[in-house]
Design a protein around this nucleic acid. Structure first.
Lengths: 233, 233
DNA sequence: CGATCGCTTGATTCCGATCAACAGGAGTGG
DNA sequence: CCACTCCTGTTGATCGGAATCAAGCGATCG
């Protein structure tokens, strides 16, 4: 495992780099540039924990580089991944009754993340209607995404799940036909509610059927994107 | 089927009763009393649609009486229920990329619902920090709930799902040991990602095991709540 | 009273899980 | 450089839980 970065950095760590200097606001996405303006950047090593399931949900996070997964565990070790977050994505919004996260969040690979106090975002939002709307829309979109995940987990076959996953990853990589997967088969399985064996077998079947080509375990070429579209809802 | 109310009321319908008169603000839950103050009350017959999956997400809703389900359908008829909403609950927050709902919403039984323009809530929130926080927390809680639903749908056995469902319904009825179910077995099955047969069988097994008692199909007595607790996460 | 709908129960099938073995790389140290 | 180990991923054989197919039952309603 990589050890290039702290495995469990403290929020008080001196390695935090504040981004408060006056800049011409490059604002990659215009929306939610508040992260770049008021947030602190932190590094996490692959497989290290960013926050725990029962920690108070004090911060919001934005991925700069790498990939993050949210994870929920049962007592006997069964694992479910709620979502993968890629550069540009915001996570950490979910907060249960007790004010704690419903998931834990972990770095899939080494990554950099901008951290922002939850209260900072909301209090800024009070004076900035556009920001408020942006945050609001982001939460609403997360909820809509959860809808798609539920029908996938509750009603779709193994093939449909894997196809939906490939389709999603392609869409998130600007529709690229050569999809790069930062996560392991185990992560994919826990995301789709399947076992590693079933994920592996299904990928092999898709390759045999001429739908995809496994360039390597972590690089998949979509040979017949139309088929993927057809099976994904 | 009951026909006591409009099956597909228009938002322009004259039956809308505005609640704008000055009242002493009874505010059942203090939070989000904005619904009672600025919303319009509408009635829906059992099994009628409140909004469709692809309609623009213009309104927020609060259940006054009855029960509501959010539903997502696949082309071949497979159905997934995202959540049940009981009196006091707010729904309709989910909104996808296209500005449309990710689910459709339907009345489970005859019900009354307060409807509020989405923009009305957010613009009021801009001038009322407490309201903004309340709305924000509500969305965050919905997201945390989605986490629990995902591990249920992705990783739990039929028995665990049914037990979790009974436990949830009991908790939402003030922890009552005699649970009233407004929804059909089919609805429960589509909520839990199972078939009606499996739901029915599992309930029978729980009764045989002395965990519950089926007073009637829609009334279930929790005889051994400790067992339910133990199996639910 | 018969019909319909929702629910339960039974028999069988099948998809994905489980158990098990093996292959291919990446990293390590001799 | 190679031998070794560890880890991830693939493939094979078998099993099992829930789906499917099929009746039957009971309540509600016309």
């Amino acid at each position: 495992m990589s050890t290039s970065q702290a495995t469990r950095p403290s929020f008080l760590s001196s390695e935090i780099a504040l981004h408060t200097s006056a800049r011409p606001a490059p604002a990659p996405s215009a929306r939610l540039a508040v992260f770049e303006m008021a947030g602190a950047t932190m590094g996490f090593a692959g497989n290290s924990e960013i926050y725990g399931e029962d920690e108070p949900a004090e911060y919001l996070y934005k991925v700069v580089s790498g990939a993050v997964r949210t994870v929920k565990l049962l007592a006997d070790g069964r694992r479910q991944i709620g979502a993968f977050y890629l550069p540009g994505d915001i996570f950490g919004m979910e907060m249960g009754e007790a004010g704690t996260h419903g998931f834990s969040a972990e770095a899939v690979v080494d990554c950099r993340v901008i951290v922002l106090k939850r209260g900072a975002a909301t209090s800024l939002a009070e004076r900035n209607g556009a920001l408020a709307t942006a945050l609001w829309n982001h939460a609403a979109r997360d909820l809509a995404r959860a809808a798609g995940r539920m029908i996938l987990l509750g009603r779709k076959s193994a093939e449909e799940r894997v196809v939906a996953f490939l389709h999603e990853m392609s869409a998130r990589q600007a529709g690229a036909h050569l999809v790069e997967l930062p996560m392991s088969r185990q992560d994919i399985a826990d995301y789709l509610g399947l076992t590693v064996e079933t994920v592996s077998r299904t990928l092999t079947l898709l390759e045999t059927g001429g739908t995809i080509r496994l360039a390597s375990a972590r690089r998949i070429e979509l040979v017949d994107p139309a088929y993927l579209e057809g099976l994904d809802d």
